[in-house]
């Protein structure tokens, strides 16, 4: 059996994917790549089937060393790229370098690699354009939000997704982009999780959009199925829970206070500045007003993925 290389492997998403791939016997060996030293993350990968390597993906030379030395030795056939900057409060060139340029470079190097044949990207449902005039059910052809006024967090994710999608037409690699619904797990960059960490959740008055959330086991299973399937394309990965924002807040055990939309931005800006939390209202403004549920039909048909585990 072959091996896979997972970037962003020290996040809960990376760890879950690595474990799922091994338990499903999709790969015999996993090269887990993270930014942290091994001493800090050794407990995450107790299996002998996982080799952990520390690498800074923003450095092209480190990427090359990673892919042309251990990846060749272990005969890596598949790269699963999940590494993205998680904080929505951080921006700038370094963040862009990790989110976008490393994806571009990784794709380019994989194309020249002697053993790598497949490239899987973890993308995000948040990149879809959500407006009053747009459909509430978003299939894979739904417009991506490329508005210039959107925060870098979103623009970078959209750009990384589109770079990978564009490569499908010209690359010798078999490329799969999984646009995953939001996973309510800490340390995954989930804006909703950070929003729900507060005891009091402010909601736009008069709006209660529908949301879909994904569990970590379902996300990992989707990657396992995509890695095993002989398919190329873009797939929406939906979760088992589709519910209004108000119900999500209530089920999470939080107090919900609807207030006029215009006050939400300043209040959440103050919250992040005073408590250091990550949630940005400007990032979530549209989906806090208008429903946006991904259509998972294509993934069900071609990857045989259907959500099974509730997200909370």
């Amino acid at each position: 059996m072959s091996a896979a290389l997972i970037t962003g492997a020290t996040t809960p998403v990376g760890v879950a994917i690595a474990k799922q791939l091994l338990s499903d016997r999709v790969f015999a060996h996993i090269i887990a790549v993270g930014a942290e030293p091994f001493s800090e993350v050794s407990a995450l990968f107790p299996s002998a089937s996982v080799t952990y390597l520390q690498a800074d993906l923003t450095h092209s030379r480190e990427l090359r060393n990673l892919l042309f030395e251990p990846a060749v030795t272990h005969r890596v056939t598949t790269v699963i790229h999940t590494a993205l900057h998680r904080s929505a409060q951080r921006s700038g060139q370094h963040v862009h370098q990790l989110n976008v340029e490393s994806t571009r470079e990784l794709l380019r190097i994989c194309e020249q690699h002697p053993t790598i044949r497949r490239f899987l990207l973890r993308s995000h449902s948040e990149i879809y354009r959500v407006r009053a005039v747009e459909p509430e059910i978003l299939d894979e052809r739904h417009p991506i939000d490329l508005s210039p006024d959107r925060p870098q967090w979103m623009r970078d994710r959209a750009e990384a997704d589109l770079i990978t999608c564009a490569a499908m037409a010209v690359s010798p690699l078999q490329i799969v982009v999984l646009r995953c619904a939001e996973c309510l797990v800490p340390d995954t960059g989930s804006q909703l999780f950070d929003y729900l960490c507060s005891q009091v959740c402010l909601q736009p008055l008069g709006f209660d959009p529908m949301l879909n959330v994904l569990s970590l086991p379902d996300l990992a299973r989707a990657f396992s199925l995509a890695a095993a399937a002989d398919q190329q394309g873009v797939f929406n990965i939906v979760g088992k829970d589709t519910l209004p924002l108000s119900t999500l807040i209530a089920d999470w055990g939080r107090l919900r206070i609807p207030i006029p939309s215009t006050l939400l931005g300043p209040l959440y800006w103050l919250r992040s500045k005073t408590t250091g939390t990550d949630f940005r209202y400007d990032l979530n403004r549209f989906r806090f007003h208008f429903s946006s549920i991904m259509d998972g039909t294509l993934a069900a048909q071609r990857l045989h993925y259907t959500p099974q585990v509730p997200a909370f």
């Binding site: 009053a132 005039v133 459909p135 299939d139 008069g206 709006f207 209660d208 007003h289």
Partner: peptide, 29 residues
């Protein structure tokens, strides 16, 4: 019509009763 999902309260009330915004995608679904 497209503007209805932008109306506070009404948009939510309508959605709970089964109303959808008039986009091609919604109608197809």
């Amino acid at each position: 019509d497209h503007f209805v999902p932008s109306l506070p309260l009404i948009s939510t009330l309508y959605a709970r009763c089964g109303t959808v915004g008039g986009s091609r995608g919604n109608v197809q679904a």
